[in-house]
Simulated scan of single mutants.
Amino acid sequence: MNSNVKSPPGCRNVSRGRLHGSLVSRLDLVTLKLFVAIVEEQSINRAAEREFIAPSAVSKRIADLEHATQTQLLLRHRKGVEPTAAGLAMLNHARTMLRNLAELESEIFDYADGVRGNVRMLASESALFGYFPDALKTFTKLYPEIRIDLAAASSAASVQAVMDGTTDIGIFWGDIAAPHLTVVPCYSDRLVAVVPARHPLSTVDTVRYADVLDHEMVEQEASSALQALLVRQAAELGITPRSHVRVAGYDAVCRMVQANLGVGIVPHSYAARLSPTAGIVSINLQEQWVDRHYKVCVRDLEQQPVATRLMFQHLTGNASTQ
């Protein structure tokens, strides 16, 4: 080592290892809190008043901190104090450490008292009927103090809401871009055709989509991801669907089918819950594209409250096929 290299004025020439050990052993959260208060108040006296401690005790702690770091952290002048460049670095880290401690305290208390919180979720209509009832039944038994706000939305809207921070967890299907989100497979479902009980197709177990398109269809709203899929698949077959009715939602589709206004396409999880007396028959479709694989997404998972993380883990740990 070059013996001619000098330490900054007022600082001892110590090794990085010794400095690190000294700082770790002498740094405490009370001093960090006082340091933040001094910078924010621009005064040792005002910081002491704010934290209910004698100014002399504050000065002693800051002097000890500067001695431990071998660095001047504050500039003292007539108008008060201000941080040095090193002091600004200390301020940023101190705030982060205090914030993390507050989050840790909140999280530990949540576990001690029984986890509480609120989780906002958006999911497709089929997920509401087919997946969530059983998934939420087990979750609420484990965490009865967590409130769940669950609403229906399109896949695109669910992803966008998570990205915007207006909802905590989204369930979606299809090739929707979800940049900067944590995305994990959740469950699978498939589409089926539903026809009136006396429809010409009602006696078959499976049917090709091309054969379904020979009949009048009940369409869904144009903004629906499912409707876009059905139109695209019909176009690949060179067929233009015939329809006089367009509705929003699977329940409305089934009601139109029940009224003998056409053939509908809905998720199997929804059709399976139709009453046997509804006068509707579901038929399996032969195409591979009828299988839909859902995903659950969340933003900054590690930064989410305990309740949101527990829900996300529950959904991804209970992936299933409907």
Rank of each mutant, 00 (worst) to 15 (best):
R76A: 12
A102H: 07
S158P: 08
L91A: 04
P83L: 12
T84N: 11
W173N: 03
G87Q: 05
E103G: 01
D134C: 06
A127N: 09
S106P: 00
G87K: 11
A112V: 12
Q160P: 03
G170M: 06
V115E: 05
M121P: 14
A151N: 11
I148P: 09
S154I: 00
I169T: 09
L104H: 08
L150A: 11
A112S: 10
L104T: 13
G174H: 02
T166Y: 10
A161H: 07
L136Y: 07
A85V: 15
M121V: 14
H77F: 15
I108W: 02
A161W: 02
E107C: 00
T140Y: 01
D164F: 08
G80C: 12
D134S: 14
A157N: 08
T140G: 05
H93E: 10
E82H: 09
E125N: 01
P144T: 10
F132K: 04
N118Q: 13
E107I: 00
F139N: 07
I171H: 04
A89N: 12
R147L: 11
W173H: 06
P83I: 14
A112W: 03
A151Y: 11
A123H: 04
L75R: 15
E107R: 08
V115A: 08
W173K: 00
L88W: 09
G170A: 13
A152D: 02
S106R: 12
Y143S: 08
N100L: 06
V159C: 10
L104F: 02
E125L: 00
L150N: 09
T166C: 08
L98S: 03
G170Y: 04
A153I: 01
T84I: 15
M163P: 07
L136I: 13
L142F: 00
F129E: 04
L128H: 04
R95C: 00
L104S: 09
M90E: 05
A127I: 11
L74H: 03
V115H: 02
R76V: 12
L142R: 15
I146P: 03
G170C: 06
E103S: 06
Q72D: 12
A161F: 05
R76E: 12
F132M: 12
A161Y: 06
P144R: 09
L142K: 15
R95L: 01
M90K: 04
L75M: 13
D149Y: 07
W173V: 11
F172G: 06
G87H: 08
H93S: 09
D164T: 07
F129N: 01
A89L: 15
Q72W: 07
T138Y: 05
A161L: 05
K137E: 09
L73R: 07
M121I: 15
T96K: 14
K79R: 15
S154Q: 01
S155R: 01
V162P: 14
P83A: 15
W173R: 01
Y111N: 06
E105F: 00
K79S: 15
H77R: 15
R76Q: 14
W173Y: 13
V119R: 00
K79H: 13
G130N: 03
R78G: 14
G165A: 12
A85E: 13
A156E: 10
D134I: 11
L150V: 14
H77N: 14
V115M: 06
D110S: 08
T138P: 02
S158D: 07
T166M: 10
W173P: 05
L73V: 02
M97C: 03
F109V: 08
M97Y: 02
I169E: 13
N100I: 00
I146D: 03
D110C: 04
I169P: 13
D110Q: 14
A85N: 11
